[in-house]
């Protein structure tokens, strides 16, 4: 029974079987295991409890935990499906799956829509878009007058808001994205295609053989 020693690995709360996660996402079992290596690093960077707290998410994204960023907050909020203030491993994998190069384009469109629907009303409203443009300008060196911002919003809504009710619904959003696929550029992470080579140490922790034994 030399090769059948059981690994007494203790997994933290929120850990889910890679086989189950692979079945529900665009990732293979090996890729889910490689993502677990990444997850462990991020989730132990400040509070070592196997969960990603917002401060750890910001630290991983910006290498600076003090940086306030509206968009990072929104992404964290969407990853945190249980809305309990932390990202568990399963939530991490399921959310990242949307960013996989082979994930359905429609899933990416839906995710981006939720991201930009700041107040979760089911519409992207003009005020929300203005808030996001202002937030983008404040994080960059770009400076635009309020007049120019309003001109940009006018142009955007003239094109996107085909029903002319001052807000963008999901169908209008889909139409806009189809005309401008570059708007979805951030929704695909090429890194996810070769995650097993980025985090090769997953091999040493792999449970795949055990699962097949």
């Amino acid at each position: 029974m030399g090769c059948f020693h059981s690994k007494q690995v203790k997994f933290p709360q929120g850990y889910e079987d890679p086989n189950v996660l692979a079945g529900e996402t665009s990732f293979s079992v090996s890729e889910v295991e490689a993502l677990y290596e990444l997850f462990k690093k991020i989730s132990s960077s400040v509070i070592n409890d196997g969960l990603i707290h917002k401060v750890e998410f910001q630290l991983a994204l910006f290498k600076n935990s003090k940086k306030e960023n509206l968009f990072a907050d929104r992404v964290f909020d969407l990853f945190d499906k249980k809305q309990n203030g932390v990202i568990e491993f399963g939530e991490f994998v399921r959310s990242l799956s949307v960013f996989h190069p082979s994930a359905p384009f429609n899933d990416k469109i839906e995710f981006a829509f939720k991201l930009y629907d700041l107040r979760k009303t089911g519409f992207i409203e003009r005020e929300e878009v203005k808030e996001m443009v202002v937030a983008l300008l404040s994080e960059s060196d770009m400076k635009l007058s309020d007049e120019v911002i309003e001109t940009i919003l006018d142009k955007t809504f003239r094109e996107a808001d085909t029903k002319q009710d001052g807000k963008i619904d999901k169908d209008e959003w889909k139409d806009l994205v189809e005309r401008h696929p570059s708007l979805m550029k951030n929704m695909t992470l090429p890194y996810l295609k070769d995650i097993t080579t980025t985090f090769p140490s997953f091999v040493f922790h792999s449970e795949v053989e055990d699962a097949n034994a």
Binding site: L38, K41, I42, S45, A60, L61, F62, K63, N69, L70, F71, A72, D73, R74, V75, L96, F99, L115, Y116, V129, M132, V133, A135, L136, L137, E139, S140, V148, T151, I152, L153, K155, T156, E159, L176, H180, S182, L183, K185, N186, L189, Y191, I195, T198, F199
Partner: peptide, 28 residues
């Protein structure tokens, strides 16, 4: 002549907060 203004979402997509590739630089 003034250049045509960008689409607001093109501007927004420039945010670093929307570029999750930073997560994958967490190696070590």
């Amino acid at each position: 002549s003034k250049p045509a203004p960008m689409n607001a979402f093109e501007l927004i997509s420039l945010s670093r907060g929307l570029n999750l590739s930073g997560l994958f630089e967490t190696r070590g």
